[in-house]
Amino acid sequence: MGMLRKFSTSHSAQKLKRIMNWYGPYLGAGVKIEYLADDWRELRVAMSMKWYNRNAVGTHFGGSLYSMIDPHYMLMLMKILGNDYIVWDKAASINFIKPGTGTVRSTMKITDEMLVKIQQETQHGEKYLPNFEVEIFNQKNELVAQAVKTLYIKRKPPIPGENSV
């Protein structure tokens, strides 16, 4: 993930999208980022059903469903918030609603309200552990799984002497 961290903070959205689509675990699971906004505030990811990503009963592996949504909120916020913040994935849970078959999709968004809340909660150097709800839908737009991603976000302390007049 170190390589992805470097690319997520120093490269354009379209370049990271290309890199992620060739990232071994995503390529092997059949995961594809379909859309990443230039401002990093929206991402759409899909996973098509392949012979190599089916479980014993012919549906998507639960781990593959989770992996398709895994790093995105962290990477998006790293880019949006910049180097003044520490952003890590802290925890996650996933609830499987119905078997996933065919192509499944998920859209993740960062809103102005989310960013204001992050800035408010971290303005004095406090850690903030927001939850981001993520839904995965099948081709009929039926809910397949719901996940909750908890991130660790903390504003870095100012460097002494920086921004001094």
Rank of each mutant, 00 (worst) to 15 (best):
Thr59Gln: 12
Gln146Asn: 03
Ile118Leu: 10
Thr9Met: 14
Pro25Asn: 10
Gly28Lys: 12
Gln14Lys: 13
Ser48Glu: 08
Tyr66Thr: 05
Leu143Asp: 06
Leu43Cys: 12
Gln123Glu: 15
Ile86His: 11
Lys90Asp: 02
Leu43Arg: 00
Gly125Glu: 03
Val144Thr: 02
Ala147Arg: 08
Met47Gln: 08
Trp22Arg: 15
Ser10Leu: 02
Ile136Arg: 00
His72Ile: 01
Gly24Asn: 05
Leu27His: 13
Asn53Arg: 05
Lys6Asn: 03
Glu121Cys: 15
Phe61His: 13
Leu36Pro: 01
Ile118His: 12
Met47Leu: 08
Lys90Gly: 08
Thr101Phe: 02
Thr59Leu: 08
Asn55Ala: 09
Tyr66Pro: 04
Leu36Phe: 00
Ser67Thr: 12
Leu16Trp: 01
His124Leu: 12
Leu77Phe: 04
Asn95His: 13
Leu43Pro: 04
Gly24Ala: 14
Glu34Val: 12
Ala37Pro: 02
Ala29Phe: 00
Met114Arg: 15
Phe132Ser: 00
Gly62Cys: 02
Phe7Pro: 01
Asp38Ala: 15
Lys17Phe: 02
Leu75Gln: 00
Tyr52Cys: 07
Thr111Trp: 08
Met47Tyr: 01
Lys17Glu: 10
Ser93Trp: 02
Arg18Asp: 08
Leu115Ser: 10
Asn141Val: 03
Ala145Val: 10
Ala13Met: 08
Leu4Gln: 06
Ile33Thr: 13
Phe132Cys: 05
Val116Tyr: 08
Arg18Cys: 11
Thr9Phe: 10
Phe61Thr: 03
Leu65Glu: 10
Gly24Ser: 15
Pro99Phe: 01
Gln146Lys: 13
Leu75Phe: 12
Met3Arg: 04
Lys32His: 04
Asp112Ser: 15
Gly102Ala: 14
Met108Ile: 10
Thr101Leu: 07
Lys79Cys: 02
Leu4Ile: 12
Ser12Phe: 01
Met78Ser: 04
Lys109Glu: 14
Trp40Thr: 00
Phe7His: 04
Asn131Phe: 06
Pro130Met: 10
Glu126Thr: 09
Tyr128Thr: 11
Pro99Cys: 06
Ala46Lys: 09
